[in-house]
Design a protein around this nucleic acid. Structure first.
Lengths: 258, 258
DNA sequence: AATTATTTAGTAAAAATTACTAAATAATAA
DNA sequence: TTATTATTTAGTAATTTTTACTAAATAATT
């Protein structure tokens, strides 16, 4: 949405190439250096912070639409994306509070109450995890701001997005116990401390410093390399890589962490 | 949908009180006597078997809409209903194969290609479990047939409903390991053999005849009564009830079966 | 009252988890 | 160069959980 012509066309004709009444919202979790963050955006036409989201093209699969949305904001393609819940409460987005003037200012086009955008919408929630230090946040003409927030310092979100975040976080943590979904958050070669810190941060709880990595190794998910890395005084841990085959097997069949 | 006037109104004005482009489908599993069945329906306007489903009223929450649909078919209200996935592939229901004449015959009203019903739809999948011996299947004017099928002898289903069933079954079984969702399938007072058979059937695998019930008791989910039941030669097992408090606690927080 | 097969309690064996100890290591400082 | 150091990581002991197996209790039947 980078030109006024694009915006005008989206508002007037969007219902022809997007599916009306259906949107999606993405809880994009970002990890780096033992910090867990969430990507939020501020629309020009809406006062508070929201999850990034958008509409689904009539030619797209749901996950493709989610991927397009994630890529538009973060610049990253083909992130691990997981559908976690669909939201459809009749008053999840109260359009009676719709401020026509503010929308006109923001979009440069007058949106009437019979426009396809101003109608009840159910929204499909996806979550993703990425390394936030590798993203390049991108706004567009309808987005005033786009930023990473620490997961423990989130502002109050608009609509039902608080509930979405809490459900997304829960779904992500449950999945983390059953599937190895951490591969995108670590460099190709990493230390046991790094993967230990990653899981502790994502799960929001302490894991045993010795037993947890041993479990990953016992499961066959990690392969030890002959290399080491110097990361400071008295510290030269071995480097590991994921065993690609075991990893994708575990993604398919599931594993159990404890 | 029990009069021609209702059908006409639904076809012509349904988009005013239902959300267009969004439907829901319910995989209703039925258990009784160590048999697991699935409820299927045959629409008059469609050749093969389908999951029961319908549209969402603009005033309804998603789960309320699902509940209404389940009640319309089975006569049972307030079943345990669980959203498991939303389906939105662009070619999940190929409306180019829509047979206008057949629809006219079935519905008594001519549906043109610009009708709200003939457009791309994403569908929200729910599953439920009930005791099929307690249901009273109900058709309506648009439904030719409605019946329970053994889970191992399902016909090929229309649209993407085969995939829905497989996803629903998987979701139900995963949940069964984590939450006690069997309460509706047993009489209020039941024997350890009965709950053992229930779980074996739902999970589709053998569970130890002695250890499995012990686990349920150890978790505190079951309370032993002073009563027994005579169910045949040499058989007078104790009766048990669910501990309501522990049960709802486990529904909320989760438990782990193995 | 004896017989029977299911029900269910009990326990032993095995496996998995958790807690703890200490050896190996390489960067630093003497 | 050698001693010191704190992290890394291997090893093992303790504990808990799971699984497998045995047998006692039970009430309907003969």
């Amino acid at each position: 949405m980078n030109t006024q012509a694009e915006i005008d066309d989206f508002v007037l004709n969007g219902h022809l190439y997007y599916i009306p009444h259906v949107s999606l919202d993405c809880a994009i979790f970002g990890y780096h250096d033992q910090q867990l963050k969430l990507l939020l955006i501020k629309h020009k036409a809406i006062d508070g912070w929201c999850l990034p989201g958008g509409y689904i093209k009539r030619t797209e699969k749901l996950v493709e639409a989610a991927n397009r949305n994630v890529k538009e904001r973060t610049g990253i393609d083909n992130l691990f994306l997981q559908q976690f819940k669909t939201f459809g409460d009749p008053n999840r987005a109260r359009m009676d509070e719709f401020d026509e003037e503010k929308w006109f200012e923001a979009t440069g086009i007058r949106i009437t109450k019979d426009n396809w955008l101003i109608d009840q919408t159910i929204s499909i929630g996806f979550y993703a995890i990425t390394d936030f230090s590798k993203t390049e946040l991108q706004k567009d003409m309808l987005i005033e701001d786009c930023a990473w927030f620490d997961i423990n310092e989130l502002p109050k979100l608009e609509f039902d997005h608080d509930e979405m975040v809490s459900e997304a976080l829960h779904a992500m943590r449950v999945q983390l116990y059953h599937y190895p979904i951490g591969i995108n958050m670590l460099p190709e070669k990493f230390t046991l401390s790094e993967i230990h810190a990653l899981y502790e941060t994502l799960l929001g709880k302490k894991l045993d410093v010795s037993n947890f990595p041993k479990k990953l190794i016992a499961l066959g998910l990690l392969k030890k390399l002959d290399e080491k890395r110097s990361i400071g005084a008295h510290r030269s841990p071995h480097l590991y890589v994921f065993d690609k085959e075991k990893y994708s097997q575990a993604l398919k069949d599931g594993v159990v962490l404890s």
